[in-house]
Design a protein around this nucleic acid. Structure first.
Lengths: 250, 250
DNA sequence: TGAACAATTTGATCAGGATCAAATTTCCGG
DNA sequence: CCGGAAATTTGATCCTGATCAAATTGTTCA
C-alpha cells in the first residue's frame, strides 16, 4: 500500500468536475459549489511520487481518491504476470470505489500526484443522507459508464492507426474539457502503457505514431507532445463513431 | 421506433435483480421487495417480437426498460454502415438510460421479449425523492460499470480462443447468477453478433468454437447449446483475469 | 414438403501485427 | 557532465485472423 503523506484536512477540497455531459457540448459542473462543500469536510490531501502505488489489489478499500494534479493508471496483473491497464485517470477523476471492502485493481501514479482522499465509510453515510448529492453521483456514474463503453468500442476497432487515433481523440477531449486549449496533446504515459490500454504491442504503438506523422496527420514536438495537423483525415481514421450506449442491470 | 404493444399497468412489475455483487459470491437482491413496489406503479409492460426494434438512435428517450424474458442487443451503426454491439441484455437487465433526452444507441430484440417500461420523467422524480432507492441504483451502476470494464478487458485480450472463452465465461456467470444451473450454456445470439461483440469476424468465431471443441474443451449439443468439458484448460484459456477496476470522474 | 433465404461452416489467400533482436535516444543519479 | 538503465525506435520474420468464396446446414412460409 502507498505510504502516502496524508496532509490533513486543510481547507475544502475543490472537486473540479469535467463536464459530465461532454457530448452535449455544454460545460456543466457535476457538483455545485455547495455540494462540494458538503463533501469537503470529509477529505484530506494525499501526495504520491511518480511510480508510487496509490493502492493495490486485494487491499482493504478504505478510501476514494479525487485527483487534483497528475496522472494515475489503474491496472490489473494477470495471473501470467502481464499487466492490463483499465484506465488512465486525470485531474478531476475519482477512483478507488470498491465493491466489498477490497480494491479489485491497482493504481499507480505515473507522474507526481496530489489527490483528495475520502474515507469510504464517511462518504457512504453522507451520501445516504443527501439525495440531491446522490442524484449527481448517479449522473456521474452514467457518464463514466459511457466513457468505459467508449473504451470498449475503441478496443473493438481493428487497425492500429484507428486505435491510436481514437486514443488521441480521447486524450484531446479530456484535456480540452479541462480548458487546456493548447492545441497540443500531452501524453503523460509510456508507449507500453498506451499499448496495454489499447491491447496492442508497444512497437505497434510506436509504428502507428510514425505512420500518422509521415502521413502528415500529426506532428510531434517531442515524445510527449503532439498536435493534429490534418483534422479531416485524422477524424476519418479515428472513425468518429461518436457515442455509446447506456445500459444498467437492476 | 418500436410499435411495442404496451400492455397497461397490470399488477406490480417484479424487478428481479441479478446479484449486484456477484463477484463476492453472496446472492443479494439489488432492490428490496418494498423498493420494487415503489417503482412498480410507474411501469407498464411492453412486448417485442424477435428482431423487432425496441428503440433506435436519436430517438427521444422517454423510457427505461427492464427485461422480463428474452434477450436484447444494444448496438450502434458506424458511419461506414457497420454495426458494433455494445452489450447483450438479459432478463433482469435495465437499459435505455439516456443522456440528454436522446437514445445514443439502438436496441433490438434477438428473441421474443417482454419488458417493463418506465417513463423516464416519472422515474427521475421518483428517484429524486427516495434517497434509499437511489443508493441502490448507485450500487447497480457501479456494478454495471464493472461489467463494462470487463468487456473492455475482454476486447483487449488477443487471441480468438481467449476472447471466445472469456465470452462464454461471461454468459455462464450471467446464467448461473440467475439460477439456471443447467451446466449447459445457452447462446441466444448469432455468430455474427458474437463476432461484433468481440471485435472479430464471424468466421473467426466459428473457428474458435471448432478449435475449442476439437481440443475437447467444450462440447456443443447444437449451435446454441454447449457445455464446458475441461474446466481447467478452459479457465486457463479464458485467462481468468477476474475482476476489473472501479473509477469515476467527479 | 420444398423452395428460398438465412446462418454457419469450411477453404484458401493475404496483410497487419506480434515477436524477437538490435540500434538509438532519453532519463537520472552521482 | 558522465555512465548506465530505461524507453523508444527500427528492422526482419512469422503467425493469426481478416477477407473473399463456396459449400452446408437450418429456418420459414406458401
Amino acid at each position: 500500500m502507498a505510504k502516502a503523506k496524508i496532509v490533513a484536512n486543510t481547507r475544502g477540497p475543490v472537486i473540479r468536475a469535467r463536464d459530465p455531459w461532454a457530448a452535449s457540448g455544454k460545460m456543466r459542473q457535476l457538483l455545485s459549489e455547495e455540494e462540494r462543500a458538503r463533501l469537503a469536510v470529509l477529505a484530506s490531501i494525499a501526495r504520491f511520487n511518480k511510480d508510487e502505488d496509490v493502492y493495490h489489489e486485494g487491499r482493504r478499500a478504505d478510501a476514494v481518491f479525487n485527483i487534483i494534479t497528475g496522472v494515475v493508471k489503474a491496472y490489473r496483473i494477470a495471473p501470467d504476470g502481464s499487466e492490463h491497464i483499465t484506465a488512465f485517470l486525470f485531474p478531476g477523476d475519482v477512483f478507488g470505489l470498491s465493491e466489498e471492502g477490497k480494491y479489485t485493481n491497482a493504481a499507480k501514479a505515473i507522474t507526481p500526484v496530489a489527490a483528495y482522499r475520502f474515507p469510504v465509510s464517511a462518504l457512504r453515510s453522507r451520501l445516504a443522507k443527501d439525495a440531491d448529492l446522490e442524484f449527481h453521483v448517479i449522473c456521474k456514474l452514467i457518464h463514466e459508464l459511457r466513457e468505459t463503453q467508449r473504451h470498449a468500442l475503441l478496443l473493438a476497432r481493428r487497425g492500429a492507426l484507428s486505435r491510436v487515433a481514437m486514443f488521441l481523440q480521447l486524450l484531446e477531449n479530456l484535456q480540452a474539457g479541462r480548458g487546456e486549449r493548447t492545441v497540443e496533446i500531452y501524453l503523460p504515459m509510456k508507449r507500453s502503457d498506451i499499448g496495454e490500454y489499447l491491447g496492442m504491442s508497444l512497437e505497434a504503438v510506436s509504428r502507428a505514431f510514425r505512420a500518422l506523422t509521415s502521413r502528415g496527420i500529426i506532428k510531434s514536438r517531442d515524445r510527449r507532445h503532439l498536435k493534429i495537423t490534418d483534422r479531416n483525415t485524422f477524424d476519418e481514421i479515428a472513425g468518429d463513431t461518436a457515442n455509446t450506449s447506456q445500459t444498467v442491470r437492476a
